[in-house]
Amino acid sequence: MATTHAFTGLVIVAPLAYALPEFATALAVGAILGGIAPDFDLVFAHRRTLHFPVTGLAVAVPAVAVAASTPSSLTVAVAAFAVTAWLHAASDAIGGGLEMDPWNDRTERAVYDHVRSRWIRPRRWIRYDGAPEDAAVAVALAIPALVVFDGWLTPVIAGGVAISLCYALVRRRLVAWTPDWLE
């Protein structure tokens, strides 16, 4: 789920946000946006167009270096975005394939590796997005974020948890509700 990816980003930046509270909001915004941005390719070639599991690291490392050498709200937000977007793409391989109904048709395509021009196979540690174990991971990752971040981020995180749980409840029914052009 995109929310799981956003919560992963928040957990990654939480220690920095705790140590450097002046950058907490920038780190959180970068992490949340980086966690959901790769899934904007859902209407294109999903997990290929905006997912960069290998080359994303080549963007994330310099972004972190720039943020470390010249910290500002902009540089730390960009670094959080780059790291979280890369982690999103890389971690899609630990889940299921990209099919709409992974419990019926199992593909061997998790996320596209642009360097090797091939698909990385799914590991299926989390069977599919919205699976009960995905919801459990999302909730577990949201807890540290709720402890570290405050203000307007608290209802955003709580809302993300609610979205995660609702999505997990209806995920298997979504296939029947999905327009043919999205399949």
Rank of each mutant, 00 (worst) to 15 (best):
T3L: 11
A6T: 04
G9K: 10
G9F: 08
V11C: 14
A17P: 07
Y18M: 12
Y18W: 13
A19H: 07
F23A: 07
L27Q: 00
A28R: 07
G30C: 01
A31I: 09
G35H: 02
A37M: 14
F40N: 03
V43C: 06
H46I: 04
R47C: 08
R47L: 06
R48F: 00
H51T: 11
T55A: 11
V59P: 00
V66F: 10
A68M: 15
S69R: 12
P71W: 05
S73T: 14
A77S: 15
V83Q: 00
T84V: 05
L87T: 05
A89F: 12
G95R: 07
G95M: 13
G96S: 03
L98V: 02
M100A: 12
D101R: 15
P102K: 08
D105K: 07
S117C: 00
P122H: 07
R123L: 15
G130H: 06
A136Y: 04
A136F: 08
V139R: 10
A140M: 12
A142N: 01
A142T: 01
P144V: 03
P144Q: 06
V147S: 04
D150V: 07
V161G: 09
L165K: 09
A168M: 03
V170W: 15
R173L: 11
R173D: 14
R173Y: 13
R173E: 14
V175H: 11
A176F: 10
D180G: 05
W181H: 13
L182V: 13
L182S: 08
E183M: 11
